[in-house]
Amino acid sequence: MLVFPPASDSQQGHARPMSDSVRVTDLSKHYTVSEREGGLGAALRSLVKRKTRTVRAVDSISFSVAQGEIVGFLGPNGAGKTTTLKMLSGLLFPTSGTIDVLGHEPSRREADYLRQITLVMGQRNQLVWDIPAIDSFDLNRAIYRLDPAEYKRTLDELVDLLEIGDLMRKPVRNLSLGERMKCEIAGALLHRPQVLFLDEPTIGLDVTAQRRIRSFIQTYNARHNATVILTSHYMADVVALAKRVIVIHHGKLLFDGGLAGLVERFSPHKTIVLKLDSEGIDLTPYGQVVRQEGAEAVLRVPKAETAHVTGRLLADLPVNDLTVEDPPIEEVIELVFDQPASLVGEAV
């Protein structure tokens, strides 16, 4: 049975700046949902006595994020990512545990807190559908009480980075998905938030638009030393932006550390790429043969046996070249997401 060691050996742990902008301790969010069977009988019974069940959407997770850090939140659908982001931005009250973001308790939703953060979630938070985005931006200027000169500077910067100069003058309903997302992001950042919660900022966008938004997030982070927590289904987003990932699964924190560490911890296999001096050698005693063409072969071996197998290969066979590689990140993530709840429970 796989038992994962506690996730404390984050690779960035020592290099991280001193000040944490986000600190989460033992955070839980439980929902009570009523459930009943289909049919009239069950409907009648539920009138008298409701059967309820507690769903642990987020179950005692702890982590902290330093000022200026970009962290990727990973987890399959329903893992608790969005619930966590909503608690961090003050939309949901935690069932238990504490959250401290920039010295504020988010669920109090103090104006002073809300002025320093942003949550991008879907495409309907910032923009009024029937009028041009620039009108919505102007409204945000008043809502966040931005100094006119400062507002103009920020707007110019966002227009330049996101290339929305023409787009923001058209009614939002006439924009494409990607164009709307760019305007949505601009609207969400006009007040220059220190902490950005981005829930699937590139979902549904084409590759070019994804790349543009990705590089924008990078630039914004670098320029303003803003803290970014983002979720995405696209590993490319996470690989490009986040040095550190937090994996949530079945509401529990499964991993917190560098991407390389994630692969290290969760992939039970290593890949050995071999070049031999002669052809037709039977490699099956050494591991699972993924591919063998002529003198070249690819083997998959259990991680723990990698050193041993490598040694045997070098000793037994006429090896010309040998490299040990990690499997692709997508494959590892798939493995992680396939973990059953019981195993996740033991991991933490």
């Binding site: 909503k86 003050g90 939703r109 809300l114 949550l119 809502i143």
Partner: peptide, 9 residues
């Protein structure tokens, strides 16, 4: 309502 609740007003 979430979008409106995120505003400092």
């Amino acid at each position: 309502l979430s979008g409106r609740m995120l505003r400092p007003i």
